[in-house]
């Protein structure tokens, strides 16, 4: 797997080259749309809603709808001009308490791995963040966007999470007035919680719908393939190698000299 991004963390006087690797992946089943009659793939055509003509990408411009059916056209050059300069370093802005940040701010998580030469400084940063229970907040440019990031230490590595800006977070739509709770009620609730505490083991949870979907698809594929179970005791690789070896040994030439090879 190739690094999704390569960056340099600048921390004090040191620069730590790191590769960011995606930490999660989509393992879900995705379907393609097919034409029921002949099972051809469904293709999309872009058609103008006004004149009905089929449109190619050269004919398309970007518009922003500022009012119903009213657009301003923005050209690619105009957008290009205001894009942030590509900068390959994460500037650490400050450090914060590890548990102080609301999960709502975290967007996409990457695993950060030091590039050759950066291991020592990387480990120093990780170990000291871990000891202090702090995370680093920094900014960099990913693609063309100015991105806020959190550098999060873990026991066995470092996670880097892109973050939402305060501006991206929705305000709470509804508030509720908190009724008073009695101490006895609290005690009971705490006891119940205490009795149900077990360490979090993510491997315990599975998307059961996806599991069933996989079973369904597998059984369909198996139904199509008549050659389901191949005899596999010896292994094809061993068979081939043994066959070659045997045929060399069986046909040992009577004379000591090997037969003359024809020019290739």
């Amino acid at each position: 797997m190739a690094a999704a991004h390569k960056l340099v963390i600048s921390f004090g006087l040191v620069a730590i080259p790191v590769g960011l690797y995606t930490a999660t992946q989509d393992n879900d089943i995705h379907f393609n749309q097919l034409h029921g009659e002949d099972q051809g793939r469904i293709k999309y055509k872009k058609v103008c809603a006004h004149c009905g003509k089929e449109i190619t990408s050269e004919d398309i411009v970007k518009g922003y709808e500022y009012d119903k059916d009213h657009y301003v056209i923005v050209t690619d050059e105009e957008i290009e001009r205001i894009k942030t300069e590509k900068e390959k370093s994460i500037q650490i802005l400050h450090f914060a308490q590890l548990n102080q940040i609301s999960p709502v701010y975290y967007d996409k998580t990457y695993q950060a791995v030091p590039e050759p030469g950066g291991e020592k400084a990387f480990e120093l940063l990780r170990a000291s963040l871990m000891a202090e229970q702090k995370i680093a907040i920094g900014k960099t440019v990913l693609g063309t966007r100015d991105t806020l990031m959190a550098i999060i230490p873990r026991e066995n590595g470092v996670l880097i999470s892109t973050m939402f800006y305060a501006d991206d977070i929705k305000e709470l739509q509804k508030s509720y007035t908190a009724p008073a709770v009695f101490e006895q009620e609290m005690d009971m609730a705490k006891k119940l919680i205490g009795s149900m505490v077990t360490p979090f083991d993510p491997a315990m949870y599975k998307d059961e719908y996806q599991e069933k979907l996989k079973d369904l698809i597998e059984s369909k594929i198996a139904g199509k393939e008549v050659v389901a179970a191949k005899p596999e005791e010896a292994g094809q690789v061993i068979d081939l190698m043994e066959a070659l070896k045997a045929s060399i040994e069986q046909n040992k030439p009577k004379t000591k000299k090997a037969p003359k090879r024809k020019e290739a």
Binding site: E232, E233, A234, G235, Q236, V237, I238, M241, E242, L244, K245, I248, N251, P253, A258, P259, R261
Partner: peptide, 17 residues
């Protein structure tokens, strides 16, 4: 050896054949 792991076979001396 089994179907998933094997040891490469080799031939002595007779490279041409």
């Amino acid at each position: 050896e089994d179907a998933r792991i094997a040891v490469s076979r080799y031939i002595e001396t007779e490279g041409i054949r």
